[in-house]
Design a protein around this nucleic acid. Structure first.
Lengths: 382, 382
DNA sequence: CGCGGCGCAGTAAGCGCTTTCTACACTCAC
DNA sequence: GTGAGTGTAGAAAGCGCTTACTGCGCCGCG
């Protein structure tokens, strides 16, 4: 039924090997022959059989991207940037040659594992994992093992916006108060060597630090934090940055910090809404709220508005990420801009191998404090 | 190197055919044998070779989604919904079994064609095309032909948020003033039959009609339209709805309507910004602006604000789509809600064949006028 | 004039799976 | 007791491509 290489070969009067060589372009073919083949391809409207080609060549031109939620612009922007790198790498033209498989994991480690298997089944050339990892000893260990094995097997693995594998292991131990390492738990090296798991990291600590410092400088002393889910690395890192800033600015009252921190169930608007109600119930003296991210900040603002509090006159609000809508929100959000597009592009290049991997296997991205209308000095000076 | 079916078979003491049957589950296998095979699979950590399986079975478990821009929540939401349908269809569990290949076409018909070829090469089981089509006779004819051929070849094709193939042809003729059809240009039937191109359509005309009527009812008489690119069906349909409403409400001055319509280069914020400046230059009497969509509306508001005009006191603004951020914009946008998630889910079901195709091959989705703070009566009564 | 080398192109052996066809017990019904 | 029927599993033929390996002219050099 379908046109095959042999059909093209017959029409061009050559062998199928020659046709294959013309199409893959990695073997010298005389110009006259090439033209004949190309014409036959055109005339027959031949389309390569990808699976057959992948089987024979033991590699496919599929690249997987794992995201928490593709409907969230945070991930949409990263995915889009990764995709952008899949183009123009063609032998002979600025045409996309690889296909991106986008997988919604909803942030669940099980789903990540499942999709990893599916991607492995497809013999994907590379996999980019985005979004903070869940700090679940069981799953993250399983995930790390799988990733390392895949990487060792030749699949390029890039973590984008999640901590390097080692860090996760280290963190886990740190949380358990076990700083010494047994031989068996010594993390496998994930350095820049071939087959390594590469990382493109955001500076969540630094960003939260900058934001908190900004609020402190404005004069705020009662800064609430409507954080993301407690088990996510991103949440932890941002909280760490926040607390480090508090500490640097005249000591940190751990109990108070604890009371002023509310963990949401997710990174969505309603988490911000619910979280804010809880926060203000616990600590009505709050004059500023740091949100887990911009989307959450929208929910924070909505809740405050509903409670009759004005932003920023009564309460300042800050987001994180600087998504496109943040500048147009009401009021425009003070936030930290993460170079999402750049990070995605970098991850894509690393995944394709068009960018040499960094020395230590990790590329750190910067951040930028963006001050807009949602933050202002507290009303009564604190 | 990699574990193959034969390895599993050897370990389980059966033939590779049996292993294949156990894994595909579409052939009776004795329980004892099945368990032995399953154990071997586990022990060897066997992962099916997708390409090999696709080659032999002449079908893959890949589904393509063509979007203009995955970073745009409009498409992100649809893509996410389509993906949601790919799960839980498994023989034996609620596990994703199909993979979604998301392709950014940037709205370019050439890129659509390119990606279609890539997807065809992968032997994708289905392809969902989203976003308005470009009304370019050359490309859209080529695209229609390709789609019909693919559909006839067994690939399920679903158009989501773009007009059915026939409509495009009809529209093209209508625009050329050719209402009679020659035999050769008679559109192939795209009805509910097997191999047909299915459609999930939004009611762009109806939505724009409702929005315009809303503004007219408020008392506006100088309603500008910052539309999308002129060559897109979505733009045309929304404009048609707009003008129909004007007409229904006391006649339409064609010249004036023309003057009050500005076409942006895209559906992004800056198109709204630029378009508004142009519009107000042409027609300073404007008291209300309809935007191509919510993102454009954000740009419209920004431009107005910059010109010292308040929304909605001086100028009312309305968007389209009701994306998540619209309710939190400044001011909250009056808009038309399109059931993006539902449409995506429907498209996904149609693509998977889990939903019987509608009679005429087309499922029409509704819309809902959402009145928020960005529209109000004009200051001086019109 | 002969031969190594080179540039192209053909031959054919798989890649790992699915699936048809075949084979081998068994179980029943007569 | 035999033959048909049934349930289960194996053998083997591809699926359409890639890629050694082989082969054939032809050039240039000795």
């Amino acid at each position: 039924m379908a046109v095959t290489l042999a059909d093209v070969a017959a029409r061009a009067g050559v062998s199928s090997a020659t046709v294959s060589r013309v199409l893959s372009g990695n073997y010298p073919v005389a110009d006259a022959t090439r033209n004949r083949v190309l014409r036959a391809v055109d005339e027959l409207e031949y389309v390569v059989n990808g699976p057959a080609s992948a089987l024979a060549a033991a590699s496919s031109d599929l690249l997987g991207i794992l995201v928490n939620d593709i409907a969230d612009p945070f991930f949409g922007i990263i995915a889009s940037a990764v995709q952008g790198e899949l183009e123009g790498r063609a032998y002979g033209g600025p045409v996309p040659q690889k296909l991106a498989v986008v997988c919604n994991t909803g942030g669940s480690p099980e789903r990540e594992l499942t999709y990893l298997t599916l991607l492995q089944r497809q013999r994907a050339a590379a996999v980019v994992l985005t979004g903070g990892a869940v700090e679940d000893p069981e799953h993250s260990a399983a995930l790390a093992t799988r990733l390392r094995r895949l990487a060792a097997g030749g699949t390029r693995i890039v973590l984008c916006g999640r901590p390097p594998l080692e860090d996760a292991a280290t963190a886990r131990e740190a949380r358990r108060g076990t700083s010494k390492r047994t031989a068996s738990s010594a993390p496998v090296r994930s350095q820049g060597a071939a087959g390594a798991v590469l990382t493109v990291a955001f500076d969540n600590r630094g960003g939260a630090h900058a934001l908190t410092t900004h609020l402190l400088t404005l004069g705020h002393r009662h800064i609430g934090y409507v954080a993301g889910p407690a088990e996510r690395t991103t949440t932890r890192h941002r909280l760490e940055g926040h607390r480090a800033a508090l500490e640097a600015h005249g000591g940190l009252d751990a109990d108070r910090a604890e009371r002023l921190t509310v963990h949401g169930g997710g990174y969505d608007r309603s988490s911000g809404y619910e979280g804010t109600r809880e926060l203000l119930r616990r600590a009505p003296e709050t004059t500023a709220v740091l949100a887990a991210n911009d989307t959450v900040a929208l929910g924070v603002c909505a809740a405050l508005r509903e409670m009759g509090l004005r932003v920023p006159q009564d309460v300042s609000v800050a987001g994180f990420d600087d998504l496109p809508f943040s500048a147009d929100a009401s009021p425009a959000l003070t936030t930290v801009r993460l170079p999402l597009h750049e990070a995605g592009a970098r991850a894509g290049q690393l995944a394709l191998g068009t960018l040499p991997p960094p020395q230590d296997g990790m590329a750190a991205m910067g951040h930028e404090l963006v001050v807009r209308a949602s933050t202002a000095p507290p009303r009564a000076g604190g």
